[in-house]
C-alpha cells in the first residue's frame, strides 16, 4: 500500500482465530460485507478467542485502524451491525456473571486487598515470585491497553456534565501527560517496554494476546462507546483507579527486584502517586458527581465495577495458571530474549 509520508500505517491485521474473526478480517481486507457470521449466534463462546478477537478488530477501527484497511470502514453499517451482535453476546455474558451489588458496597469493596489465605493477586505473585520473563510477558499483554491508556475513557466526556465532567477531564489531562507529550502515560509504557527489550510499536503483541486480555480492552471500548453505558464506564474507571495504586507499588517492586531499568520502574512508580489522587477524584467527583445528576445510574456504576473485577480476575487466573505450570501465558511463540 502506498504510504502517506508522516503517517503511521497502523498495525498489521492479526491471523483469525475462528469463523467470526475470519469474516471480519475478510471484510476489512476487501472492504466487503462480513459474510459467514452466523457464528455470532449462540454457538460461539462469548469469552472465546474467536468472538473476542472479532470484537477487538471492530473496535480498533475507532482507535488507530489497521494497515491497508480503509478508514471509512469505521462507519460501515454492515460492520456496525455485526459489532452490535457481538456486543450483545458479550454484554449478556457479563450480565449473567456479575452479581447485582449495592453501589456503595461495590466501591468500598475495592479498598480491600486480598486477605491472608486468599489466592494472591497477579501483582502479588509478580512482586514475590515474578521472573524477568514473566514481567516481559505481562507487559506485552498489557500493552494492548497501556499503549492507548485512557483513550477508551475519553469517549465518556461529552456524556457528562458539571462536577463529573470537570473531574473526568482533569484525570484524563493527567493521563495524557498534562500538556507534555513525553509524559503521556502511553509514552511512559512504551519506555517501559523498550527498557524490557520489547517492541513498543502499537498493536505489536495483538497476535500473542489471549482472549482474557482482549476481553479486558473490549470491556473499556464497549463502555466508552455507548452513551447508555456511561454509568458502567464511570464504575469501570473507579475500579481501575482504586486498585491501581497498590498494584503499581507491587509491580514497581517486582521490576526493581529483577533488575529492570529506571524507565520500566518509572511507569509503575508514577502510577502509585498519580492513582492515589485519581482514586479520590474518580470516587468522589466523577462517580459522586454523576450520581448527583443521575441517581438512577447507581446500578450501572455497580455493574461497571463488578464487570471489571470479573474480567480482570479471569485474566489473572489464566495468566497465573500458565505460569504455575511453567509455561508461557502468551499465545504463540515465547518472546525472544
Amino acid at each position: 500500500m502506498p504510504q502517506i509520508p508522516g503517517r503511521q500505517p497502523g498495525p498489521p491485521l492479526p491471523t483469525p482465530r475462528g469463523p467470526l474473526s475470519r469474516a471480519v478480517l475478510h471484510a476489512l481486507r476487501t472492504s466487503g460485507m462480513p459474510g459467514g457470521t452466523e457464528a455470532a449466534g449462540e454457538a460461539t463462546d462469548p469469552w472465546g478467542e474467536d468472538l473476542q478477537l472479532a470484537l477487538y478488530m471492530l473496535y480498533e477501527l475507532h482507535y488507530r485502524g489497521f494497515e491497508a484497511v480503509d478508514e471509512e470502514l469505521e462507519w460501515s453499517p454492515e460492520l456496525l451491525t455485526l459489532r452490535r451482535a457481538l456486543e450483545h453476546r458479550y454484554l449478556a455474558a457479563l450480565r449473567a456473571s456479575v452479581p447485582a451489588a449495592d453501589m456503595t458496597q461495590a466501591l468500598d469493596g475495592l479498598l480491600d486487598e486480598p486477605a491472608r489465605g486468599e489466592p494472591p493477586s497477579l501483582s502479588d505473585h509478580l512482586a514475590r515470585h515474578g521472573t524477568l520473563a514473566d514481567l516481559r510477558e505481562y507487559a506485552a499483554m498489557r500493552s494492548l491497553y497501556h499503549l492507548k491508556e485512557a483513550d477508551p475513557h475519553a469517549w465518556v466526556i461529552p456524556r457528562l456534565t458539571g462536577t463529573a465532567k470537570a473531574a473526568m477531564v482533569a484525570v484524563e489531562f493527567d493521563e495524557f501527560g498534562a500538556g507534555r507529550a513525553e509524559d503521556i502515560h502511553a509514552r511512559l509504557f512504551a519506555d517501559l517496554m523498550e527498557d524490557l527489550g520489547l517492541d513498543s510499536t502499537y498493536g505489536r503483541y495483538l497476535e500473542q494476546a489471549p482472549a482474557t486480555m482482549l476481553a479486558s480492552v473490549n470491556l473499556m471500548s464497549l463502555f466508552g462507546l455507548h452513551r447508555s453505558l456511561r454509568g458502567a464506564l464511570a464504575g469501570h474507571f473507579a475500579h481501575v483507579e482504586t486498585t491501581s495504586s497498590p498494584a503499581s507499588r507491587r509491580l514497581a517492586a517486582a521490576l526493581r527486584r529483577v533488575g529492570a531499568g529506571a524507565a520500566a520502574v518509572r511507569f509503575y512508580a508514577e502510577h502509585v502517586e498519580a492513582d492515589a489522587v485519581h482514586e479520590q477524584v474518580v470516587r468522589h467527583q466523577v462517580v459522586g458527581g454523576l450520581l448527583e445528576e443521575e441517581p438512577e445510574l447507581a446500578a450501572d456504576v455497580a455493574f461497571g465495577i463488578g464487570a471489571t473485577a470479573l474480567v480482570e480476575d479471569r485474566f489473572a487466573e489464566r495468566t497465573l495458571s500458565h505460569w504455575q505450570e511453567g509455561g508461557s501465558a502468551l499465545r504463540g511463540p515465547v518472546l525472544p530474549v
Binding site: 479498598l111 480491600d112 507499588r249 502517586e273 492515589a276 489522587v277 482514586e279
Partner: peptide, 16 residues
C-alpha cells in the same frame, strides 16, 4: 506512606 509526603494508599491497611 512510603512516598511521604504524598499518599500511596497505605492508610487502607491501617484502617482495616
Amino acid at each position: 506512606s512510603a512516598a511521604y509526603p504524598w499518599c500511596d494508599t497505605t492508610h487502607r491497611h491501617l484502617q482495616r
